[in-house]
Design a protein around this nucleic acid. Structure first.
Lengths: 243, 243
DNA sequence: CAGTGGTCTAGACCACAAG
DNA sequence: TTGTGGTCTAGACCACTGC
């Protein structure tokens, strides 16, 4: 077993190599992997690289380690599906559920931000904001109703376009050079708002999941204040929880 | 700035040391930290240790790195302490909200597991299971209604006790030597079940958040199948989402 | 005791950003 | 070209496990 490459990190290759080894050797759940020293010899890499690879496998819940004993394959290697803790655009989520994502931008408004928006988006009192109200569909079914508020100063006027199929993340990345990497979401069970009933033809007694989120740039700048209402018949929200 | 210790990992000490440095030197948001080489000299440790410490700070969303430029303090160092992605017992969550946790065990039953339980808990067809139905309170307010199902083979008979104040996690850890480290939770908005209305005097039109969870031991064994209904007036569920 | 993973050091080369 | 972070190697000592 030898691995070599120029573009991909050795530790990634080592990880894949170990996965293949588990499959080929038919290592069963709870059985022991070769020791780090052995893996070093097998793959011809240093201990650092082996440990990096094992750390990646541990993150993926495929293996576990016990000091003094060894490294083992998990009984139930829970594959990380796209849990809520992984930040994805709604477009991406809809695709991952196997639906065809679509959408319509219902409204773009310049607003005076609320006190909460001013705090969360770190705005000055004079700053204005732009609100995008959109409806998202999955195979024609109503999937989500999104109200996203963004500080006005991020845009040049010509940047404000309608967002139909385009993901907000892609829009920010390609048009504004802003790369969203982190969000804090609050999960709130709720009924549809009056606006949803009026604009989106949603039954007023159906249950929805509201994700009240602040999205941050990689340098920590808050850039989007969003209120997204999800149809629980379309989305099954899961979270991987680690102690 | 020197750091030295015998019990705590050097990289942890280095992390704290860097945090203190940021405070003392009043390094402002978006300002640059000393380079890794400088930090090595300042703290008298190797580059590996410095990078470990910086990795911890990056996980905590306190700093960010840009290759070729340097390491910087985030604009808004967001650190949501108890996000849903962090697995905590309900007792711990209630405490972290500043309430006084309490509870009552309403029912302990031996049941024949459902097909879903058999699959998720990896049971054999003959296996029985034990269901614990409990109500949890925070400062006397109804906080959650918990129905936890556990394979019977995990218990010796004398182990089955009533769980009142005791956390399920502590119970497993101390009585059974099982350390729960991971769970997959599905988030479902719902109304109270008939059982909740009957046993817990809950209004049938109130909204609840159902967490449908499978809990895993550190070796990947599924050990608890739980259906926990949370009162959203007590719990504000947040999630840190990373791209 | 020997074998395992946990931590740390010292040194090297690379890719990227900015002058 | 210089300085930064990204990756990798080789070697060391420790703590824990099980014989």
């Amino acid at each position: 077993m030898k691995i070599k490459n120029d573009t991909i990190a050795l530790s990634r290759l080592a990880k894949q190599s170990i996965i293949e080894f588990i499959k080929e050797e038919r290592i069963q759940p709870d059985e022991q992997l070769p020791s780090e020293a052995l893996l070093m010899d097998m793959m011809g890499v240093s201990r650092y690289t082996v440990r990096e690879a094992l750390a990646l496998l541990e993150q993926d819940k495929i293996i576990y380690k016990v000091q003094g004993k060894g490294t083992f394959v998990k009984k139930v290697p829970v594959k990380i599906e796209s849990g809520l803790e992984k930040l994805e655009s709604i477009t991406e989520i809809i695709k991952s559920f196997g639906y065809n994502p679509n959408g319509k931008c219902l409204k773009i408004e310049e607003i005076t931000p609320t006190q909460d928006m001013i705090e969360k988006l770190k705005l000055n009192k004079e700053d204005k904001a732009i609100t995008f109200t959109r409806i998202r569909t999955a195979d024609e079914k109503i999937a989500a109703f999104c109200v996203d508020t963004v500080p006005k100063y991020l845009f040049k006027d010509e940047d404000i376009i309608t967002l139909n199929n385009l993901s907000m993340f892609e829009y920010f990345s390609s048009k504004l050079g802003i790369h969203i990497e982190h969000a804090v979401a609050e999960i709130i069970p709720t009924f549809p708002t009056k606006e949803m009933v009026k604009l989106a033809d949603v039954g007023s007694h159906e249950l929805y999941i509201l994700l009240r989120q602040i999205h941050y740039d990689n340098d920590g700048t808050p850039v989007i204040y969003s209120m997204d209402y999800f149809n629980p018949e379309v989305f099954k929200f899961k979270v991987n929880r680690i102690r």
